[in-house]
Design a protein around this nucleic acid. Structure first.
Length: 326
DNA sequence: AGCCAGGTAATCC
DNA sequence: GGATTACATGGC
């Protein structure tokens, strides 16, 4: 796989129009997120790739107070509709137009939330992935350790995605559903080490190839719709709803975050999922997902799963991603 | 060896 | 219906 070089095509200035505080760093970088190679962050800058159909884009972001400045890099024909798409995509992906003030007010009255709020106030949900991409991420999280999730992600993106280079950084980029639909279950199992997921991932690819975002937008109950896909159960559908659909009341519970919330809300090492959900919704009506996000990210703040890069760490980052010279 | 991982579907009663 | 159980794989 050869690295694709992207050229600077545009600069977008995205105002944070939603009410409530704004924390740029913890909005774009989440301490709990595992390493994918799709994004990289220093304390003040953030790089990320986005697929817009066939177009591959690289984005470098920084913030000046309540303005996010996004430099766009592409290798294809960059058209005005791409600009409009990216303004909407970036604004939505990082919740720049969402009202955080209600959650923040609610949270400031809950003692258990005192420390997370002190550290993370102004953090918004982030989901640069579209519904297909976040569904793949959630699939790879099912019933495995993070080490294995990371391995499977690396395999898939290495074999079926691409490498891009822009603004002096190298990143991975996603495959599209149509691209992945060409890959056989045998390849996913034997080459990409996906285990039993090899049989369900092709269903994800064909579903999203055949149902574009505009069509899904019109669906009545997206959670029910998504659970029609083989391999999408309550957890994966909830991740899609809370992250890609940005429903602040939805929280995708798994054994990992359940234990975190049990400790923080119920003073127990673990608890029944229903008990945890009930308490979370009781304390944060309408904002259970946002509240869960704050607890989980605060839990990882001191020891992030994928730490920030030092400004002089980018060369080593690039080295790690680029294929060895032949 | 056996159990568990940031779940889901199939198969029981 | 709600409660088990198999599902791939890798690390401890």
């Amino acid at each position: 796989m050869s690295t694709r070089h992207l050229d600077h095509a545009d600069t977008l200035e995205l105002p944070v129009t939603g009410d409530g505080p704004f924390d740029f760093l913890h909005t774009v970088w989440k301490p709990s997120h595992f390493a994918t190679g799709l994004e990289a962050h220093t304390a003040t800058r953030s790089w990320r790739t986005f697929r817009i159909g066939d177009l591959v884009t690289g984005v470098r972001m920084r913030a000046e107070d309540r303005l996010v400045i996004a430099d766009i890099y592409t290798d294809g024909d960059y058209k005005p509709n791409h600009r409009e798409h990216l303004v909407r995509r970036l604004t939505a992906s990082y919740g720049l137009d969402e009202d955080l003030s209600h959650f923040t007010e609610l949270a400031s009255a809950v003692p258990e939330m005192s420390e997370p709020l002190k550290a993370l106030s102004g953090m918004r949900q982030s989901c640069p992935e579209d519904h297909f991409e976040i569904a793949v991420v959630a699939l790879l999280l099912q019933n495995v350790t993070i080490a294995r999730t990371t391995q499977m992600t690396r395999n898939l993106l290495t074999h079926h995605g691409q490498l891009v280079h822009f603004d002096d950084i190298t990143l991975r980029a996603w495959f599209t559903p149509a691209e992945l639909a060409h890959v056989s279950a045998d390849t996913l199992k034997d080459q990409d080490r996906l285990g039993y997921r090899a049989k369900t991932l092709p269903h994800f690819a064909t579903f999203f190839r055949d149902h574009p975002a505009e069509e899904l937008q019109a669906a009545d109950d997206l959670v029910q719709t998504f659970q029609q896909i083989k391999g999408v159960g309550p957890y994966t559908a909830a991740i899609m709803a809370s992250h890609a659909s940005r429903n602040p009341a939805t929280f995708g519970m798994d054994v990992w975050n359940r234990k975190i919330l049990a400790r923080r809300l119920l003073n127990a090492d673990d608890a029944k999922p229903e008990a945890v959900s009930r308490r979370l919704s009781e304390l944060f009506p309408g904002h259970a997902g946002t509240a869960g996000l704050y607890f989980v990210e605060h839990e990882h703040l001191e020891a992030p799963v994928a730490p920030l890069l030092a400004p002089d760490g980018i060369a080593a980052w690039n080295q790690a991603l680029e294929p060895p010279a032949a």
